[in-house]
Design a protein around this nucleic acid. Structure first.
Lengths: 203, 203, 203, 203
DNA sequence: AATGAATGAGTTTTCATTCAT
DNA sequence: AATGAATGAAAACTCATTCAT
């Protein structure tokens, strides 16, 4: 039993280590700019080993994308299904989740937002609906909030969902985890603007 | 003089045509994914000709970046200097300008936001301050609005500027020029949210 | 003893199954084009297993060649030693045997005729004499037939043997076992031409 | 004019030299076994140069195949259209042509007969009908000869055409140009067998 | 102003083989 | 008897760039 554990500790990490390296390198340098040589040298391996675990460079990209979007959708779904949340609270939770997600893995986010075009057409067709689903879910929360009277009834839920995605996702361009502003605080700041607007004397 | 003119009439279009091709190709396929062959074949030229006009592929990228950011800063500065504008109006004009800019040249925007990392370190050092300046200017408008009592005094101008950049710039991911929503309308929708927020019953 | 038998029942089939797979794959795709991965996957095995049974890919090729040429020579020798056969009958039997051999194992024939060049120099030196022997034996039958007055005395037995080899072996390019023309019939057709020629009014 | 000629002498040969090298190497070592490195080193060039002239290794193979089969068909057509030839003479001329063709370019023949499987499916579809045409043309000559009473009427023209192809083409396995037997002589020997058969006392 | 030939360093990928277990 | 991990050498191909003309 002890032995089995120690074996797993030695085996699994190799593939996982490579994926982590890929996320880091794809995120920092870009998919195209990262060579197999870069990846394997970062892990003290040889090229052959890479191709033992993955069938191509795109294969890893696919894996990263799938993991990222699945994670996002899963967390989003959980929030949407929380029963005692108001729509306001749901929106808050989703924005917070997006920011935390980016803060936790800037490189993953980079890969996700920037390198999708390197996926094959077939894979793109598979992943795009998931991306759309994420936006549609935000739109649904807004629509729910409108019909419950939590949000203004003159809003365009679709455009608003894009605005919220923009606010939250743009943070991957500038946000520094561990910097002055913590993720919670940023969420508060953003939600405050989204909910109340910036104009003086309207509240 | 006549000769010089006629020569220019022949010269400039060629160079400009190539730059336009580059914007289109870099935007659609990416900088790295676009080969010199792609560029020259799109114009019925040969590689040699490309190197007659540009000293390298990066050279074109630099030009595209410089043009884009200079245009943005120029338009922004003009708005900021418009004397009879309130800060609210200035903010409106800047958001409108960003959206129009993206709508007019999605490819340029793509190149600008996505391909900057292919610039040399030296060039990056030169361009980054300009990018920062653009954000700082938005921040300045907000600070102006706060001190004039147009905007709420409890706002963090820096974070807010990022939020506004996110809202406007994110449109390059999904906005379709010529679609249902016109640029002016999108600006109105976004500014309405930014100014008044989305919460019901607070106005 | 019982144990040994049961072990053999488990062992031999595995090795033989692999060789059969190799014949099929080498024949259809070619030696170089068939990877160890192809071979083992076709048998639900892993690479290690292949190297447990064979010391290299060439090893299998050698085995296939040896088996094929040995079979041919053996059958040929048997025909040549049949005492009550005339030389005409011997020639008939050899041609029939060649055609049957190809029809029965097109893949083996393919490997034999096409992939010999992948054998090591040493192995080639060993196998070539056997190939030559096969041709020489046909030549010998013809020479026998000439001296016995069965065949025309003005024939060049060597060139004729090549012609017969060509006629029979070329069938591996086009012959479809199970098609309209059966092997026996094809033999009759070919022997009829070889013996009597195609010209009208000479019989 | 002199200059133009000398330029052409310098230019064209490069591509042609490479094709010749390819024929020699593909023929001797095989398509798969010949690396681009082999090809360019044989000509004192670098890999890049190869890809300047050809878009892939298959590209050259296609060229070799097209040239070979076109040449064969062209010569065959010319023979078939010679008006004062009897069918016997046409058959003679075609067999002679095949033998000469192989003798003149054993390597080309090798490539043609052995390496066709490396062509893409699309290219194979294009070339196969041409190969079939060659056989069909021989069949046509035989059928003509039968109906004119030159050849026996009980022959199967299709099987016979395969036999003749086999006899002639098999020579690429063993024939040595410049050896004891000249091409004309071999043609005479083969045609004599084909026309009259080998059996004694039937003429 | 424009071209065509050539290059060389780099890329992804394949694969037969080894070996500890 | 069988496996899974790892390797290393070589393969085909790409491409920005140079340069003589």
């Amino acid at each position: 039993m002890l032995k089995e554990e120690s074996v797993k500790r030695a085996e699994l990490p190799m593939k996982e280590k490579m994926i982590d390296t890929c996320i880091a390198l794809f995120g920092r340098k870009g998919f195209r700019e990262t060579s197999i040589k870069d990846i394997v040298e970062a892990n003290g391996m040889t090229k052959g080993t890479f191709y033992y675990y993955f069938k191509s460079k795109e294969d890893v990209l696919v894996y990263i994308h799938d993991t990222f979007i699945s994670g996002l959708l899963h967390k989003q779904r959980k929030i949407m299904q929380t029963e005692n949340y108001s729509y306001k609270e749901k929106l808050y939770a989703v924005v917070e989740m997006m920011i935390l997600n980016i803060a936790e893995g800037v490189d993953s986010a980079m890969v996700f937002f920037r390198e999708m075009r390197h996926l094959s057409e077939a894979k793109t067709k598979e992943i795009l609906p998931k991306r759309d689903q994420f936006q549609k879910n935000i739109q649904e929360i807004i629509e729910g909030g409108i019909s419950k009277g939590e949000f203004r009834s003159d809003l365009r839920a679709d455009m608003l969902s894009y605005a919220i995605l923009g606010i939250a996702n743009w943070s991957y361009f500038w946000y520094e985890p561990g910097g002055e502003v913590k993720e919670q605080e940023l969420t508060n700041i953003y939600m405050n603007i989204i909910l109340q607007g910036i104009e003086e004397g309207k509240k």
